[in-house]
């Protein structure tokens, strides 16, 4: 090299990768610690799940089944969506069932219920039932049996109570009533719900999957075999927003005190609403959106690096050309 003095861009070319690691770490940590406001764009598949669940509001003859098919490794992406959906159900008085078929999902399922329950006066057996863990080997038999009679397929809930004796089961018989199944997985586990619950009994099936798996599910969305989908942290963020904007909507009463005033879904409202994340007190149910902030900054950071790297590349190339 003729010119010994390296300019900024050339230095960037030879940047030690550890600086990149450092910047990425900061880009992830800082947005997590100091949330900023960002707007979440709600996509169609998320909207569809929300609308479907919301249409069960206050009905005793409808219920949602949440199936937890993942372990702790994908918790970061899936847990916020589980909590968001549970909150939606608790807020809107929608009956929920939970079940899991892998042992590692059991503690996550309990934890999600515990987290979402906070602040709501909901009771197990009346507002929701945890079916608990059932072995993977009987997963398909249970799916099929549920098409006939849920209380026969599952028999006992996680607390050992007979399902038939629970008030929540009064008007719930099979997939005709438990009309929506949402499967959370980092794999293609939702496929078996499509094959058995949807194809055989016409139940609505939706999926909550990790971002990596989301691409695989687009074909089912296109065909309508999946009612909706939450893809990765982004999907969770979208759902959180919908819950905040509609189900947990607050309005001031005549004394100016904020009162809960849930409202129905509307495309027009969502376009013009955004929820402040900067006020730290309310961080609790904003995990996914705050996470998306980190993701945004990280993506931007990488893009900036790529651009800088390219500028440096062109400059050094031109220099080389000049020398030659």
């Amino acid at each position: 090299m003729a010119d010994k003095k390296m300019n900024f861009f050339e230095k960037m070319q030879a940047l030690d990768r550890r600086y990149i690691y450092l910047v990425v770490a900061l880009a992830i940590i800082i947005p997590l610690l100091v949330p900023f406001n960002s707007r979440t764009y709600v996509t169609e598949p998320t909207e569809n799940i929300y609308k479907k669940i919301d249409s069960f509001t206050g009905r005793n003859d409808r219920a949602v089944l949440l199936c937890f098919d993942h372990d702790a490794s994908t918790m970061a992406e899936l847990f916020p969506m589980e909590v968001a959906i549970l909150r939606h159900c608790f807020e809107r008085d929608i009956q929920v069932f939970t079940i899991c078929f892998i042992p590692a999902a059991k503690p996550l399922m309990d934890y999600a219920l515990q987290t979402a329950k906070e602040g709501y006066e909901v009771q197990s057996g009346i507002d929701y039932v945890n079916f608990g863990y059932r072995p993977w080997a009987i997963r398909i038999p249970i799916m099929l049996k549920m098409g006939d009679d849920i209380s026969e397929a599952v028999e006992y809930d996680d607390e050992g109570r007979k399902l038939t004796n629970l008030p929540i089961m009064k008007e719930i018989m099979n997939y005709n009533e438990m009309n929506l199944i949402v499967d959370f997985a980092g794999s293609a586990a939702v496929l078996s719900w499509i094959t058995y619950a949807r194809a055989k009994f016409g139940a609505n099936v939706a999926a909550g999957v990790t971002a990596v798996m989301a691409a695989d599910n687009y074909i089912y969305l296109q065909t309508g075999q999946l009612t909706g989908m939450l893809g990765g942290l982004k999907g969770a963020a979208e759902y959180e927003k919908l819950v905040d904007v509609f189900a947990c909507h607050m309005e001031p009463d005549e004394n100016g005190v904020m009162q809960p005033a849930p409202r129905d879904f509307s495309k027009e409202i969502i376009k013009n609403t955004w929820i402040k994340m900067s006020d730290i007190k309310n961080r609790m149910h904003k995990t996914a959106r705050i996470g998306m902030n980190a993701q945004t900054v990280a993506h931007l950071m990488i893009i900036v690096f790529i651009i800088l790297g390219n500028i440096g590349y062109f400059i050094s190339k031109r220099k080389k050309d000049k020398v030659n």
Partner: peptide, 18 residues
Amino acid sequence: KIDVNVKTGVMGDVMYYY
């Protein structure tokens, strides 16, 4: 046996085994 999640404990006041 009935497994219990140590973190969350048992939600009800009574446990049943059938």
